[in-house]
């Protein structure tokens, strides 16, 4: 991080510290949470200012708000079916919270809250608890038949049931690890290339020429990370929808 030290500190960027001065410090409000608030504010602003003109032919902002609404609405109806309309606000919140977190994290001096396994795990656990509660509410104890694929020989029960339970419990883990790993990998690479660049530049005139390499890599990486930011939010939301589909329809 520090330009003076010729060492690669790729992980320091993920360090939490409190923000908003003494008030933030007294309630342990971190810069991660500040970014969450900013992301939430941007989402709400997009929808508020997007919906306000109420025009039949939408302007740019209104089109963006409507596009995002339609995008998640179609995803939910396609993946879950018409029962999925109930979960539309939840999936919408989830998708845009993650998307804005990923995108805001790409800004300089910003912080990526989706690069914290605690955050992604909390979101994933929220999803899986919701899925389980929904499944139990709809199907009652019949839900547990989920762990027993129909038609399997009874002798395999001691193997199949634990495997199915592990597989079910691994859903939040894979959800959180996938998002976390993608975001961390991207930001670590940014940091590494940026540090290379600084180190090169420190080596004089030839170094300036050599610094172009890592700089170009970072520019390309930025494009790639924009893609990843959208894709990972999308994957998280789609998998949530698929799990909700399973919970609603059970097999």
């Amino acid at each position: 991080m520090a330009a003076g030290e010729p060492s690669i500190d790729a992980l320091g960027q993920f360090k939490l510290h409190t923000t908003l001065g003494p008030i933030g410090a007294s309630v342990n409000f971190t810069q991660s949470n500040l970014l969450m608030v900013i992301a939430s504010g941007l989402i709400l602003a997009l929808l508020y200012y997007g919906a306000r003109p109420r025009a039949i032919v939408p302007g740019r902002l209104q089109a963006a708000a409507e596009l995002s609404y339609d995008f998640i609405y179609n995803m939910v109806s396609e993946q879950i079916g018409h029962e999925g309309r109930k979960f539309f606000p939840f999936v919408f919140t989830l998708f845009f919270f993650i998307l804005f977190g990923n995108l805001l994290g790409l800004l300089p001096f910003s912080f990526t809250y989706t690069s914290h396994i605690a955050v992604t795990a909390a979101l994933a656990i929220l999803v899986i608890v919701l899925v389980t509660v929904v499944a139990l509410a709809i199907h009652g104890l019949h839900f547990f038949s989920y762990f027993w694929p129909s038609g399997a020989p009874i002798a395999l029960a001691p193997i199949i049931v634990p495997v199915e339970i592990i597989s079910y419990l691994s859903r939040p883990v894979s959800l959180s690890i996938r998002l976390f790993a993608n975001m961390v990998a991207g930001h670590v690479m940014f940091e590494v290339f940026a540090t290379f660049m600084v180190m090169m530049a420190g080596a004089g005139v030839i170094g300036y020429a050599g610094a172009i390499g890592p700089l170009a890599l970072n520019v390309i990486l930025m494009g790639f990370e924009l893609l990843v930011a959208g894709l990972q939010a999308y994957v998280f939301a789609v998998l949530t929808c698929i799990y909700l589909h399973d919970a609603v329809h059970l097999h």
Partner: peptide, 25 residues
């Protein structure tokens, strides 16, 4: 603390979106 704040912020965002912003759109 981050996760606790996450819960609060996410809940507020969810409520604002589901009760206010999304119905408008």
């Amino acid at each position: 603390a981050q996760v606790v704040w996450l819960g609060i912020i996410f809940l507020v965002l969810y409520l604002l979106l589901s009760r206010w912003a999304l119905p408008q759109v």
